[in-house]
Amino acid sequence: MSTQINTIPASEAVRSAEERIASYDWQEFATELSGYGCAVLPKILTPEECKEIAALYPHEEHFRSHIHMARHGFGKGEYRYFKYPLPDLIGGLRTALYPHLADVANEWNARMGIDQRYPAEHKDFLKQCHDAGQTRPTPLLLQYVPGDFNCLHQDLYGDLAFPLQIAFLLSEPGEDFTGGEFVLTEQRPRMQSRAEVVPLRQGDAVAFAVHNRPVQGTKGNYRVNLRHGVSRVRSGQRHTVGIIFHDAK
């Protein structure tokens, strides 16, 4: 089986990603994301693309590191971080999704009284990361088998952290695996934590808050703290690709 995603030039992969991303209602998406800390983009990847990306997992030449979660107390399962240059489709999605999320991120920071603002294009934000010594790519491919799970966590890799990220489900629930639901928890000040279980199908993407989001209260906006994870896989095999927009030290 080929280990390459797409034989088309990178510029065409980016253009294809931009075209499919442009078809979504981003105003509705932003409202959902701001209201709940997560929002779904349905069928952003085709089944064929999902299978092609998942098939990269055994091929070490595409990755810079291999993490076994149990060794670090992250849960049970494993993942690999892609190395630069990223596969065309993953790099294209990262580039095309960023401007829509940057608008939300800037609005959130304004509401939370955070001075940081994010540039309109991803290449400019990556330059900020690299100037700060954060040069290692963070998109990753995760693999789960029965009994595996991912503890609730936040993906913060340095002083610069983009406040939103996206995970794409590459496997079909009920066919390729059972269990393995995406879970988001929100720790609200002086209140019980709120849990959100996000139903996804193959090719769907969920965007979610990495760390904090603003919530409107009676005395203005306040910050809530979020963590995300994956519940126990009960059967089969589950693959996910995660796109984090900041690079790591």
Rank of each mutant, 00 (worst) to 15 (best):
Gly180Ile: 02
Ile90Leu: 14
Ala105Val: 10
Ala70Gln: 15
Pro137Lys: 00
Ile53Asn: 14
Pro137Glu: 02
Gln154Lys: 09
Gln154Val: 04
Thr95Trp: 07
Ala102Arg: 00
Ser65Cys: 04
Asp103Pro: 00
Gln128Leu: 12
Asp124Leu: 11
Thr95Met: 08
Gly133Cys: 10
Glu172Cys: 10
His62Gln: 07
Arg71Gln: 15
Ala110Gln: 14
Gly77Val: 04
Asn106Arg: 11
Ala132Pro: 00
His62Val: 03
Gln134Pro: 02
Ile53Asp: 13
Pro173Cys: 01
Ala70Lys: 15
Phe125His: 09
Asp124Met: 08
Ala120His: 02
Glu181Leu: 04
Ala54Met: 09
Ala105Met: 02
Leu101Phe: 05
Asp131Pro: 00
Arg117Tyr: 05
Glu52His: 12
Tyr118Leu: 06
Met69Lys: 05
Gly179Arg: 11
Arg80Gly: 06
Thr138Phe: 06
Asp155Cys: 01
Phe74Glu: 13
Leu97Tyr: 11
Trp108Val: 02
Pro173Phe: 05
Leu101Asp: 09
Asp148Arg: 01
Leu86Tyr: 15
Ile53Thr: 07
Asp148Ala: 04
Tyr157Lys: 01
Asp159Thr: 12
Ala161Gln: 09
Leu56Glu: 02
Gly174Lys: 01
Gln128His: 05
His66Ile: 06
His153Pro: 13
Leu101Cys: 12
Val183His: 10
Asp103Arg: 14
Ile67Tyr: 11
Arg64Cys: 02
Met112Leu: 15
Arg64Glu: 01
Pro146Arg: 02
Val145Trp: 00
Ser65Glu: 13
Pro58Leu: 05
Leu97Thr: 01
Gly91Phe: 07
Glu121Asp: 15
His122Pro: 00
Thr135Tyr: 11
Tyr84Ser: 14
Asn150Gly: 05
Ala102Ser: 08
His122Ser: 06
His66Cys: 02
Pro163Ala: 03
Glu78His: 03
Tyr157Met: 00
Phe149Ala: 08
Cys129Phe: 05
Leu141His: 02
His62Cys: 08
His100Thr: 06
Met69Asn: 10
Asp159Cys: 06
Leu126Phe: 03
Val104Leu: 12
Ala132Gly: 06
Phe74Asp: 14
